[in-house]
C-alpha cells in the first residue's frame, strides 16, 4: 500500500495510472489470498499458533486490497456513465467473477473478530470456508483476462490448487485420519 502510494506520488506508476493501479491492487489481493490460505498448512507443519493470528491479518489484507481494486475500478470507469458501466459489468464475465469474489470476502472480513468467532462457534469455520470459493473465482478472474501468456494465471492458480489440495487431502485422506478411523472401529 505504501509502495503503491509512493509510486503514485513520485510518478513511478508510469503513464497509464488506471492500468497500473488495477494490476497492482489485483496482484496484491491475490498474493494476500494465497498467503491467507498458506497459514493453516504452515501452522500444522510448524505447530506455531502465530500463524493463526497471521491468517486473520492476511485475510483482512486480501479484503482490503480487493476493496481498493473494486473501488478503483468504479472510480476510473464511472465517468463512462452509469448505463455504460452497468452494460460493461453485465457483459464481462471476468468482472462479475471479480465482484463476486469481493462479495464473498465481505462477510469474512466483517466476522473476522474473536467476538464473532466465539459467537458463531462451529458455523464460523464453515462460513470462512467461503474463502476457497473466493480464491477459485479469483483464479477464473485472472484466466479470463489472459491475452497470450498464461504464466501469471498458471502460477497463481497452481498455488491455490496446491493449498486447496492440501486441505482435501487432510480432510479425507490423511494418515492421521485413517488411523483415527481404524481406532474407532476397534
Amino acid at each position: 500500500m505504501t509502495l503503491l502510494a509512493t509510486d503514485l506520488i513520485f510518478g513511478r506508476s508510469g503513464p497509464d495510472v488506471v492500468s497500473y493501479i488495477m494490476h497492482e491492487t489485483g496482484d496484491a489481493t491475490f498474493l494476500m489470498l494465497i498467503l491467507a490460505l498458506s497459514m493453516s498448512p504452515l501452522r500444522h507443519a510448524s505447530g506455531l499458533k502465530v500463524f493463526l493470528q497471521l491468517r486473520r491479518q492476511m485475510g483482512l489484507f486480501a479484503f482490503f486490497y480487493a476493496s481498493l481494486h473494486a473501488a478503483s475500478y468504479l472510480y476510473f470507469y464511472i465517468d463512462i456513465g452509469w448505463i455504460y458501466l452497468k452494460l460493461e459489468i453485465l457483459k464481462r464475465p471476468y468482472i462479475i467473477l471479480g465482484f463476486l469474489c469481493w462479495l464473498l470476502l465481505l462477510p469474512l472480513a466483517v466476522t473476522s473478530t474473536h467476538y464473532h468467532q466465539k459467537m458463531f462457534g462451529a458455523y464460523w469455520s464453515a462460513l470462512h470456508k467461503l474463502i476457497y470459493l473466493a480464491s477459485i473465482f479469483a483464479c477464473l478472474h485472472v484466466y479470463l483476462q489472459v491475452r497470450s501468456d498464461f504464466t501469471k494465471a498458471i502460477v497463481f492458480s497452481a498455488a491455490v490448487l496446491f493449498l486447496l489440495a492440501w486441505r482435501i487431502h487432510r480432510r479425507f485422506f490423511s494418515i492421521d485420519l485413517r488411523l483415527q478411523r481404524s481406532k474407532n472401529l476397534t
Binding site: L8, V18, L144
Partner: peptide
C-alpha cells in the same frame, strides 16, 4: 465494435494521473 472483454467507446490519453485520468 467493442472488444469482447472491454468497451472501445473511450480511451485513456497517456500520460494520465490519479486525479486526471484523461478519458
Amino acid at each position: 465494435v467493442s472488444h469482447p472483454r472491454w468497451s472501445q467507446r473511450t480511451e485513456r490519453r497517456l500520460p494520465t494521473s490519479f486525479f486526471d485520468p484523461r478519458r
